[in-house]
């Protein structure tokens, strides 16, 4: 599919996002939650990069940083040649139409007092100079594209089901013809039979409009279906990144191996035959991460060196990156 030389549309370098913790009467800063602590990756044009990890690992924060919804602590985010981490005011605003977001909870991300038509056309009001008729025509086109009947334009979000609401959110994200869309758990709140509808829609739209996705999810089997490449995150850092096929078939990092083996297999005939790596304990607090490798507290292969030195992020195969002391 991607035989042409791959060109990164988004390049993230050493991204850091630390949220300060304030305590006491004087509200002095006593520490920081290191939600994202130095991660680097590229998203190539036209691909879907899956970003997976457990809750609290910082994957949503990465998504928000990449769109500059937070003021990042450090690092650079280059989208289509412009570093948006340092961009200010009007320049940033001019860049916004290129990058959009689809949110997790379609209930909370749509204004209940606005009609579907006005929700979808709001980005047009902000960024385009269109007449009312042009806008109505554009909203109609967008609703067609996501599979909503045009006659619903005057209805309110509560009149729709979860899957339809997510379609409204997708139409809004598409309104300004973006190149890059961050999908933050777009199917997590939907039922299984509806999830497949939305995933298929996202794929169709990608093909039709040449979109590039950063797809954030904790649903490993859905990411496998959708993503070209997959990045695995643990406690604010990337532990492994690679081609989806390679990563799922031959995961190298012990965390990726444990995570993939924990996914229940919908086949009772195989249930007893799969070797499962059960991780002990819970994810440590990102306000006080363990020294050395952050995974060392739960890692079945941890040695003394893991508790002291943080492993380097290095290429272990073609386009396959990992951070572990014990991968050759």
């Amino acid at each position: 599919m991607l035989d042409a030389p791959k060109k990164p549309l988004v390049r993230v370098e050493n991204l850091k996002m630390h949220f300060p913790i304030f305590r006491g009467v004087l509200k002095r800063q006593v520490g920081a939650v290191k939600a994202v602590d130095g991660i680097s990756f590229d998203v190539f044009e036209g691909e879907t990069l899956g970003l997976v990890g457990e809750s609290g690992c910082g994957k949503s924060t990465v998504g928000r940083c990449v769109l500059r919804l937070y003021e990042v602590t450090g690092g650079s985010i280059t989208i289509d040649g412009t570093d948006i981490a340092t961009l200010s005011g009007a320049d940033l605003r001019a860049k916004r139409p290129e990058m959009q977001m689809i949110f997790q909870d379609p209930q909370a991300s749509l204004n209940p007092r606005m009609t579907v038509g006005s929700i979808i056309s709001e980005p047009l009001d902000e960024h385009e100079h269109m007449t009312r008729d042009e806008k109505r025509a554009k909203v109609g086109e967008l609703m067609d594209a996501v599979g909503l009947a045009r006659r619903f334009a005057d209805r309110y979000p509560h009149e729709f089901s979860g899957g339809q609401r997510q379609r409204i959110g997708i139409a809004r994200a598409l309104a300004l013809n973006p190149k890059f869309i961050v999908c933050d758990e777009p199917i997590a709140a939907l039922d299984v039979s509806i999830q497949a509808q939305v995933v298929n829609l996202l794929e169709d739209l990608q093909e039709k409009f040449g979109l590039t996705y950063l797809f954030i999810s904790h649903d490993l089997s859905m990411v496998r279906h959708l993503a070209t490449r997959v990045a695995v995150m643990y406690l604010g850092r990337l532990v492994e990144l690679g081609d989806a096929e390679t990563l799922y078939m031959a995961p190298r990092h012990p965390y990726t191996q444990a995570l993939l083996s924990a996914v229940p297999n919908p086949d009772p005939a195989q249930a007893g035959h799969i070797e499962r790596i059960i991780l002990e304990g819970d994810v440590p607090s990102p306000a006080n991460p363990p020294p050395g490798c952050t995974f060392s507290t739960r890692c079945p292969r941890a040695q003394a060196v893991c508790k002291q030195d943080s492993p380097a992020w290095r290429e272990i195969g073609e386009g396959h990156f990992a951070a572990c002391h014990f991968i050759e």
Partner: peptide, 23 residues
């Protein structure tokens, strides 16, 4: 249909997920 809509971890990737239309 429920069984078909599940993407499987161990199999090759289907071109398109079978979905159940409607609500």
């Amino acid at each position: 249909a429920l069984l078909e809509t599940l993407p499987r971890m161990g199999e090759a990737r289907a071109a398109r997920l079978p979905s159940i239309d409607g609500q």
